[in-house]
């Protein structure tokens, strides 16, 4: 029993403060508004019209012949207009490295998501009171979305919660919204995951080390509690 107590004491020195941080950030996750914490405070549900004049469509085989070889070709809509999205190099997930070409499905002209297009996509996905203040091109890694591996347009809105919209430059895909609520939640995630390098991951050395210390602390405490119980130390005195 002497060793159990020693373990408990020394483990509490190592992991005690972090245990409190885990509990406080944990209770924050319990109480937070999940929509706001995900940065979706002003994210609108976009309902596109998707009109299609099938007579005018260029055949996909013709499009494929004109560009470098593709793994997939898909008929998509960007701002109510049809495009072919050619995937040349496919990542396992959309936020992984992907290479695309966008082609106007009526004229077979290559199409680029420039600042103006990105701004328009961002505006449609936004239902807050702000206006666009600034647009920037960002290469990964993107602090607000550390797992995103493709370049993005960062569109700043001048509302009070500093909403940013991130649009993938090679596909026009909305990576996500971010605002002060998400950035605050991200701080708590950083603390909970001990992810001080903002890698968007909890599989790090410091976390593993303290996870072991936490196991020592709780298991020794558990044994101590059982020991106290067996010795009849849990008695209600009147």
């Amino acid at each position: 029993m002497k060793w159990v107590r020693k373990f408990h004491k020394w483990a509490s020195i190592v992991v005690g403060i972090q245990f409190l941080v885990w509990l406080l950030s944990g209770i924050y996750f319990n109480l937070m508004d999940a929509t706001k914490a995900a940065g979706r405070t002003y994210q609108a549900h976009v309902n596109y019209q998707n009109p299609l004049d099938t007579e005018r469509l260029v055949e996909p085989s013709m499009v494929l012949l004109k560009h470098q070889s593709s793994v997939a070709i898909e008929l998509i809509h960007i701002l109510d207009k049809p495009f072919y999205q050619l995937t040349h190099e496919k990542g396992l997930y959309s936020h992984f490295k992907n290479t695309y070409t966008l082609v106007d499905a009526y004229t077979s002209q290559q199409f680029l998501i420039d600042e103006k297009v990105a701004a328009e996509i961002a505006k449609r996905s936004y239902n807050g009171p702000g206006e666009i203040a600034e647009i920037k091109l960002l290469e990964p890694t993107i602090p607000d979305f550390p797992k995103q591996q493709n370049p993005v347009w960062q569109i700043y809105f001048d509302d009070v919660i500093d909403t940013n919209v991130f649009i993938e430059t090679n596909s026009g895909r909305i990576v996500g919204h971010s605002d002060e609520h998400k950035r605050l939640a991200d701080i708590f995630f950083m603390l909970h995951f001990m992810d001080y390098g903002n890698n968007g991951s909890f599989n790090n050395i410091q976390n593993m080390f303290l996870a072991i210390a936490a196991l020592w602390l709780t298991l020794s405490g558990f044994m101590w509690t059982i020991h106290l119980g067996l010795k009849g130390k849990y008695k209600i005195r009147r």
Binding site: F202, N203, M208, A214, L215, L219, F222
Partner: peptide
């Protein structure tokens, strides 16, 4: 106390296996 044990065991599992 039992939930403390559960938290640290499940937490350790999640931390040690690469996501």
């Amino acid at each position: 106390g039992i939930q403390f044990v559960i938290w640290s065991m499940t937490g350790a599992y999640m931390v040690f296996f690469d996501i």
